[in-house]
Design a binder for these strands. Structure first.
Length: 511
RNA sequence: CCGCCUCUAGCUCAAUGGCAGAGCAGUGGACUCUUAAUCCAUUGGUUCUGGGUUCGAAUCCCAGGGGGCGGACCA
């Protein structure tokens, strides 16, 4: 806490001449003391309201201008604006359902109570009782008989007109962002609607919601660098999970048939407009289904989420309108690359041949990569940027898909798809590999690549193999990046806009 | 980790090498139908930090810090 240098006598700071944040806080804190001194609690324990502001608007929104009713209501909200015309004060208060004007007349409240109204600051929480009315100009208002302070704000709100625009401050002080920026509140309403919609759809189709460990002894199920942590009592290092996959499939082995989890996963990688170190994934696994079933459920989940969150399946991507309800095109990875460059590429081709093509088209690769992984690099380099509308990219090479089942018609690719929208990967799914012998071979390939220096590759998960040995039914699986779905439906370009508290460096000093 | 951009009052922004300013918020005053209320008066600055160039630096240079965008990384 900084003590103002201008304060010569610390026992009695001079609020009349000071200014700036320190003086403003001192002035408001002095008001807190003044209220306590006379026996009024500036932070009461509870308050009963009869209506939300949204209720008031719904019930009386059509009232004609210049109407006085004797309908009594009690609402609560934060003071956002105050217009003082002397013996009449207008204030705009806000709760999560909206804003409404208070009409506070000295003649109604009485002189003593009116003095306290005058002392209210922007940002204070109040509980208000009064009657519903409209002004001569037609503004729906509550004609207050009492205005009770529910919580004194000692820090001023951001600018009442321009709000808070500094991105750094908006993300660090999300609380302030949410108070003043309706758009920010909207993004998190959409987020809630998406998650609720996913749950509703999945429950409706017989899926069971489960929770699996966040702390893993082995970080498997994806290619990513994990965060490490330590458990003291067990005296061992643990990883934060990078995927949900392997535990959920153990449950399919256990006979749960349809399971899903919505959970946080952690990847120790770069931060960008599309990546946050912790993000939310929904994964589901459905026994007796294959990748085609999973593509269908992906369309249902996201289309219904759009309807539930936005009331429409029409969305705008890069200024262009798309209807999510129309079937989503399917594009094979090898086919897309082949079409783009005019020659056929396929993971069955010798590595030299594929490398030559990559060199020719500026796609990068590492010495340890096989043909399949180089083709993926070609796809990322040449095709990804062109995908705007929702598109299933299918047929990923076996080399880059260690948990997916080989295509029933082509032994070099898998029955796998990734959903791309606006050049971003939103979902990933496949027919799950359930042959324990083949899975072991795939894990051993991963381990070999890891041993050769590729840090993101996987390891042999013996317990998972043991589970498969009990027999996993044919299964289709899906992972959906919730944050990215919310980005799509919110129409924002940065993942930080849809994460309440995105990862940032800590502030050095808090003012 | 690299490149570019950015950082000025609580908030939103000016000042392009020559006295650090405005609006909002705050403070004092007027006002019983305002709508970002209005009107009069007024307080408030480590110009992100440190160093340098210069008679003189918010401004130019160097280093550092925060943030943004792009790249790298991210199957």
């Amino acid at each position: 806490m900084v003590v103002s240098e201008a304060t010569e006598n610390p026992d009695e700071p001079d609020h009349s001449t000071g200014s700036g944040l320190v003086a403003e806080k001192a002035r408001r804190l002095a008001r807190v003391e003044e209220l306590r001194g006379r026996g009024d609690e500036p932070y009461p324990y509870r308050f009963d309201r009869s209506h939300t502001i949204g209720d008031v608007r719904r019930t009386w929104g059509e009232l004609e201008a210049g109407t006085e009713t004797d309908n009594e209501v009690t609402v609560a909200g934060r003071v956002m604006l105050k217009r003082d015309t002397g013996k009449l004060v207008f204030a705009t208060i806000q709760d999560r359902s909206g804003q409404v004007q208070l009409f506070i007349s000295k003649a109604v409240t009485g002189d003593e109570h009116f003095v306290d109204v005058k002392e209210l600051d922007l940002g204070d929480w109040v509980g208000v009782s009064g009657t519903v009315m409209t002004t001569r100009k037609g503004e729906l208002s509550i004609k207050a008989t009492t205005v009770r302070l529910l919580s004194k704000a000692v820090r001023p709100l951001p600018d009442k007109w321009h709000g808070l625009t500094d991105t750094d401050t908006r993300f660090r002080q999300r609380y302030a962002d949410l108070i003043v920026n309706e758009q920010a509140r909207r993004h998190f309403e959409i987020r809630h609607a998406v998650v609720a919609s996913f749950r509703r759809t999945l429950h409706g189709e017989g899926f069971i919601e489960v929770e699996t460990p966040v702390l893993h002894a082995e970080a498997g199920g994806a290619h990513a660098r994990p965060f490490t942590t330590h458990h003291n009592a067990l005296a061992m290092d643990l990883y934060l999970r990078i995927a949900l996959e392997l535990h959920l499939k153990r449950l399919i082995v256990g006979g749960m048939e349809r399971v899903f989890e919505i959970g946080r996963i952690f990847r120790n990688e770069g931060i960008s407009t599309r990546h946050n170190p912790e993000f939310t994934m929904m994964e589901l696994y459905q026994a007796f289904a294959d990748w085609n079933d999973v593509m269908d459920i992906t369309e249902r989940l996201i289309t219904r989420a759009a309807t539930d969150a936005l009331g429409t399946t029409n969305i705008t991507i890069r200024g262009e309108q798309f209807d999510l309800a129309e079937p989503w095109p399917r594009l094979s990875m090898c086919g897309a690359v082949s079409d783009k460059i005019g020659t056929t590429v396929h993971p069955s081709q010798p590595l030299d041949e594929v490398r030559t093509i990559a060199d020719h088209h500026g796609a990068k690769y590492e010495p340890s990569w096989g043909s399949g992984r180089v083709i993926e690099s070609l796809f990322e380099e040449l095709c990804e940027a062109d995908i705007i509308r929702p598109t299933f990219v299918t047929g990923h090479p076996v080399e880059i898909s260690p948990l997916a089942r080989v295509d029933r018609d082509d032994p070099f690719v898998t029955e796998r798809f990734e959903l791309f929208v606006d050049s971003r990967e939103l979902a990933n799914g496949y027919s799950e590999l359930n042959d324990p012998i083949e899975q072991r071979a795939r894990f051993e390939d991963e381990q070999a690549a890891k041993d050769a220096g590729d840090a993101e590759r996987g390891t042999v998960d013996e317990d998972y193999l043991r589970a498969l040995e009990y027999g996993m039914p044919p299964t289709g699986g899906l992972g959906v990046g919730i944050d990215r779905v919310v980005m799509l439906l919110s129409g924002v370009d940065s993942i930080k806009e849809v994460i309440l508290f995105p990862t940032l460096r800590p502030e050095q000093e808090i003012h």
